[in-house]
Design a protein around this nucleic acid. Structure first.
Lengths: 336, 336
DNA sequence: AGAACGCTTGGGAGCGCTTCCAGTTTCTCG
DNA sequence: CGAGAAACTGGAAGCGCTCCCAAGCGTTCT
């Protein structure tokens, strides 16, 4: 543990070199008022000469502000973050944070250990704010977060309650859009493969499906529950085919599942979109490359990240932004 | 700026409640020796009662250790992080960091502002270590990083020099594998679409291609340079077809490009793999869903993240780990 | 029984920065 | 030209924690 590294330059040294007091130097750095122009310049010169950079820890301790916010993903599945979805969210968040002096910390609470850490984070002010994306249904962490003494905004509304601050995609609207599209193109025996029913998105998309069919006076009983995964889609499609061989369309709550379903359909000798039309959800990259390319619902993931960050910034600033629901839209390809 | 929140519990309060000195309490928390069992327990009880959680900033200031490392992505392209590649890397990193008390910070130095921030980070000890993934060739930041007074490990070797600590995938070996596979399956007029030649991976993959052909005594002149993107692949394939209409195989340096190339080939009436075989690189998700599914080179991205984190941990601990090259392997599908 | 040793203990000095406050200087205006 | 206001200035008190050190004590050994 020999400390070879050169000691860091401190504010005192800057002050000394500039011939002012430490307080004055500090004021210059935070460009606070009450510093004469001459001194201000002297300090700036000293800063440049010495290559001074303030010590973040010291500042954090003194100001009681950490200078960092965290994006926390709470899930029971360690794989979630591998979903490109989050990569997009992060890009959106970063683009907003870049304008500020805040750093972004990532926290994946998938293990018990991670949970504990996140919990601790929420209970103490070790961060200036957190963006929480909780995937599984009645995450106790979500409730804890809602009453944490740190600003928290939710990405995607939790299923058990409606938090004060959140931004979400219009899952229900998107699902309705998809189903209406199926109806509009002449389908009548429309099935669905839902997502996990313990996730907000899963429930909302199922609701949208039901609504559209209800409005059209069609039967909404061809339902199998999936889990958002490709394998799940495969299983569900098999089941659907067995139970409702007459179906002529299926709204699948995620592209991953749709890809699995598509294969089952083709293998079973049903043509797509001839015999059965299929629409997915999310517009992942791979949706463009299936045969046929998948009609799907696209949600503005990057915007979601951006708005999430903006909302957090607002709450940190003491404002009370209203929840935000981002629009989804239909991307029509060849599977319908 | 009214501070509604309750003041945080401090070590002093814990000490007082436990009837010990602050130093003793501190020792217990860091489970250092020289504390009697009785006091240790008293402190632990007080901690539990009060719900005490140490203040990270204060600790950081006192120990001169931040308790966080950063993953920095330096690139001229703001989109890079959207690449699922990084999501995987992050998962790998997190899995290792989870075992420690370190937090992960994300820093995308795509704008000038971001660059400045990263630079500042490197010049001062505001983090305990950085993992730098630099995509563009002669990134000045890379050089700066190499002589920073903070431990730095590189993810993917920069092109301009070989850093002391890095972990990379065996891009050259993978490319050779791919090309040899093409040769082994009887192809003789093998072209390549390279990646960006100002990125290490681009260069290495091109080298691997050349080596394999050289060993086999085949012509390695059917070359067009791409940029890793799908559009780039499309463009490159057109060009290749125009210049070398006789080609019977092409090694494409990324799946994205391969997807574009595949379409061009099919549109041009060439069958795959009948007329021309094609192999990509990366094994992205979409590679499974093309028609035909893409033979490709798979690299252990998550391991890369994991090893990156491990190496950083080692250097932070004062060790001098040796660079690591992770193996790549051929995933054969129907395009060859 | 006394010396020597080793573990425990709490005091106190920082870590580098912000910010309050009182004192000083400089303006401004009657 | 003098008084009061306004702007500037630096001292000092923290922010909460770590860690060195000297002092205190109970043991063990001779």
């Amino acid at each position: 543990m020999t400390d070879v590294r050169k000691r860091q330059v401190t504010l005192d040294e800057v002050a000394e070199r500039a011939g002012v007091s430490r307080s004055a130097a500090s004021r210059v750095l935070n460009n606070a008022p009450h510093v004469s122009k001459a001194k201000r310049e002297a300090v700036q010169r000293a800063v440049a000469d010495l290559g001074y950079v303030p010590n973040a820890s010291a500042r954090a301790l003194a100001t009681q502000q950490v200078g960092a916010v965290v994006l926390a993903i709470s899930s029971d599945n360690p794989e979630v973050f591998a979903d490109p979805f989050f990569a997009e969210v992060v890009v959106g968040i970063s683009s907003v944070l870049e304008e500020t002096e805040l750093e972004l910390m990532l926290m994946m609470a998938t293990s018990t250990r991670g949970q504990t850490r996140l919990e601790r984070l929420l209970r103490t002010r070790q961060t200036d704010g957190v963006m929480l994306m909780s995937t599984h249904g009645d995450d106790p962490l979500a409730r804890l977060a809602e009453q944490a003494d740190v600003p928290v905004v939710f990405g995607g509304a939790p299923i058990a309650f409606e938090p004060q601050y959140y931004v979400d995609a219009d899952n229900r609207g998107g699902a309705r859009l998809a189903t209406e599209h199926l109806i509009a193109t002449g389908r009548r025996r429309i099935a669905t493969i839902t997502g996990r029913m313990d996730e907000g998105a899963g429930v909302a998309r199922y609701k949208g499906y039901q609504e559209a069919l209800a409005v059209a006076g069609l039967d909404a009983s061809r339902v199998v529950h999936g889990d958002f995964s490709e394998d799940g889609g495969t299983r569900a499609m098999h089941e659907l085919l067995a139970m409702h061989p007459d179906l002529d369309a299926v709204f699948v709550a995620s592209d991953q599942m749709a890809i699995g379903a598509l294969r089952v359909l083709t293998d079973a000798g049903r043509t797509v979109p001839g015999d059965v039309a299929i629409v997915g959800f999310n517009d992942v990259n791979a949706a463009r490359h299936t045969t046929p390319p998948l009609t799907t619902i696209s949600q503005p993931i990057r915007s979601l990240g951006r708005e999430l960050a903006r909302m957090l910034l607002a709450t940190i600033a003491g404002e009370s932004p209203t929840p935000l629901i981002l629009p989804t839209r239909l991307v029509r390809r060849a599977s319908t």
